[in-house]
Design a protein around this nucleic acid. Sequence first.
DNA 1: CGGGAGGTTGACAATCGTCAATCAGAGTGG
DNA 2: CCACTCTGATTGACGATTGTCAACCTCCCG
Lengths: 247, 247
Amino acid sequence: MSNPLALKPMLQKLAYWQPLDESDEQALLGLPHRVREFTAQHYLVREREAATHCGVMLSGFSIRHKVVGGGARQIVSIHMNGDLVDLQNSILGIADHSVQMLTKGQVALIPREHVKQLALDHPRIGMAMWQDTLVDASIFREWIANVGRRDAYSRIAHLLCEFSLRLEVAGLGKVTNYLLPMTQEQLADAVGLTPVHVNRTLKTLEQEQLIGRNHRTVTIGDWQRLADAGDFDPTYLHLPASEPALQ
Amino acid sequence: MSNPLALKPMLQKLAYWQPLDESDEQALLGLPHRVREFTAQHYLVREREAATHCGVMLSGFSIRHKVVGGGARQIVSIHMNGDLVDLQNSILGIADHSVQMLTKGQVALIPREHVKQLALDHPRIGMAMWQDTLVDASIFREWIANVGRRDAYSRIAHLLCEFSLRLEVAGLGKVTNYLLPMTQEQLADAVGLTPVHVNRTLKTLEQEQLIGRNHRTVTIGDWQRLADAGDFDPTYLHLPASEPALQ
DNA sequence: CGGGAGGTTGACAATCGTCAATCAGAGTGG
DNA sequence: CCACTCTGATTGACGATTGTCAACCTCCCG
């Protein structure tokens, strides 16, 4: 169960934020965990329940979402390769949102007490995890602005840009060409629109040659033009200094 | 400048999350800081600039906001008495959003390096600050859902409920009666609507006797009914166990 | 070949935005 | 004390983006 290398991605991610010494690394990699393969749609945590584990995405995609009164769903974030999943719920205890697999994939699960204790025993790791969740928070803010103040057209263009960069950083695609891992209905839940309107908007983006589509594959001809349409400025992603895409 | 008691509210807030010992408390209260009075509209940090200080709200209100392409503004959160302001930008370094005073008020400012160092030297404080920002993040998620998936009516009802609880917890009003510290235009920027539509919606809420209004004062006759209208469930605020309002 | 999920499309409805006028209240100076 | 002014609140008429409903199509898979 406890593959000693499974937490490598987590280590890499955190080391980006804080220099970690030998003892930090040992402690982190030594965290008890088990790697599991989940099917698409599987719930890792449900809203209102107690969070028991925090996870590291090893493959596949997962989403966090909330369900509002009428039954409508809002996706609040999307996780991919290397992302820490549910640190938020784990540290706070009670889940204020659900975490669900979007596609099938492998996740390394770590019991929450161990994660919390690790942060207390190894302040640099604690700081790094904090920073990681702060980036999540920064993305939340951008999403509030996206959903609250941009029309369907730029809203979707914005999401496509975000995906483009994040997938490239995660090593899952090129900035100009990637596989979108979600249905139009899920896209709609992420941007606060209806599936029908997402469909129409994608078509428009395609007609105006901002993107090309082939099944779920998105091709971006002129990245800058799409970024302009989406009012996209990657500052909020707090990515490593210079991403090639931004040149 | 450095009032030894000024950081008390910060201590109280953090102690809620983690038991702090004598040395933690000393270190926290001993943080170098200065208390300043700011006028309404004053910018504490501007988007894209480097964050230099983190603050503790001692009086008054402040907001965090982002400006999108067309010039529209989206308020992403509202801070009141006792809230830690701009921990997020401070820890990440470059501000991905602006922080602005909503009303005049006093803020204790702490240089960011000292805050970060404190977290590293005192892991329990670090953990507590982390948890504090996680609650912020939880509110962000709820706001994404609010703006993305609720209509104007419940969206505004929801915000009024959130205010009601948070103001009471901060000791600034009663759950059933409080002074809303913002104009309808600012309200609009918080919920992603136009001022005109906010006005109409408030009028409707009033006509249906969900709220009473007198200038900026909001009166809530039947809290539960407003909560139902706003699809409001306070879980996401991660408040101390039982708030009277929820009985 | 049949079934099902997801994608497309059109017609129509409704929420919400825009524009612009008017009103109410707070502060200011004479 | 009374214009005067400014900001914010209110209202109406109208327009537009987005939602709803429902049909049909396409691809994938057993």
